[in-house]
């Protein structure tokens, strides 16, 4: 049911947020960000899901003609594709940040970042 998916996505979002706030290690925060984004993507897809329908891939002529009532909403799927790629980009950048952080601070502990304040 859609409700299950929604519940799961909210759980994932919550877990991601909790992970970001409760973790001290930057790499773990990155993982939590990924979890958060997975949750959001799941939410997005579940919005478009209608039970019993097919995936929105028009692989035959007859499907092309009368697709409307038979496939799930394709728009969220396109959105999620984009969002996953964006998440990938962010993650890659985050990891490079983690490397530079280790080089400059000798640690990836976020609570060591206390030089800029006031």
């Amino acid at each position: 049911m859609n409700l299950d998916f929604y519940a799961l996505s909210i759980f994932l979002i919550g877990a991601g947020l909790a992970g970001i706030f409760l973790n001290r290690d930057f790499v773990k925060i990155l993982v939590s960000i990924s979890v958060l984004e997975s949750g959001v993507n799941l939410l997005l897809i579940s919005i478009g899901y209608v039970q019993g329908r097919l995936a929105p891939i028009l692989f035959s002529q007859e499907l092309k003609a009368s697709a409307v009532g038979k496939v799930v909403d394709p728009v969220p799927q396109a959105l999620v594709l984009t969002a996953i790629v964006i998440g990938l980009g962010l993650l890659a950048f985050g990891l490079s940040l983690a490397i530079w952080m280790a080089k400059n601070f000798e640690t990836t502990d976020v609570s060591e970042l206390k030089r800029l304040r006031g």
Binding site: L90, G94, L97, W100, M101, N104, F105, V110, L113, L116
Partner: peptide, 8 residues
């Protein structure tokens, strides 16, 4: 890096 991590 510190600024960027927080921003990120």
């Amino acid at each position: 890096i510190e600024a960027s991590v927080k921003y990120f």
